[in-house]
């Protein structure tokens, strides 16, 4: 099963660091499976806050999804998705 890790504010919202989730063969469907698992908490706060959608940085096996097909990037059984809120620094 793909492993999903949460960081920053997303970790606080879902209440755990890491989980195993089945049911997604792309990043997009994996996100849906995550939403289903964490329910309103995740949907409202991460996917769609009243003000705006939380910007996320999604790394699949250490690669930003933007460079491997975005939400339709394929996800395999042993893959690892890291979910970060958009942050910055220097």
């Amino acid at each position: 099963m793909p492993r999903v890790s949460f960081f920053g504010i997303v970790r606080e919202i879902v209440g755990e660091k890491e989980t195993l989730i089945s049911g997604g063969d792309t990043v997009g469907s994996l996100l849906e499976a995550i939403s289903a698992k964490y329910g309103m908490r995740f949907n409202e706060k991460v996917m769609e806050t009243p003000e705006r959608k939380l910007d996320l940085i999604l790394l699949l096996n250490g690669r930003h999804i933007e460079h491997i097909g975005g939400l339709s990037a394929p996800v395999k059984e042993e893959d690892h998705l890291a979910v970060f809120p958009l942050v910055g620094g220097g």
Partner: peptide, 24 residues
């Protein structure tokens, strides 16, 4: 802005540790 309005105030710069580490 997601970084200046939320990321930096909430977590400071330290939250980059896990991102850079995950990127290898």
């Amino acid at each position: 802005n997601g970084v200046t309005g939320e990321g930096l105030p909430t977590y400071g710069t330290a939250v980059l540790v896990n991102i850079l580490n995950q990127l290898g």
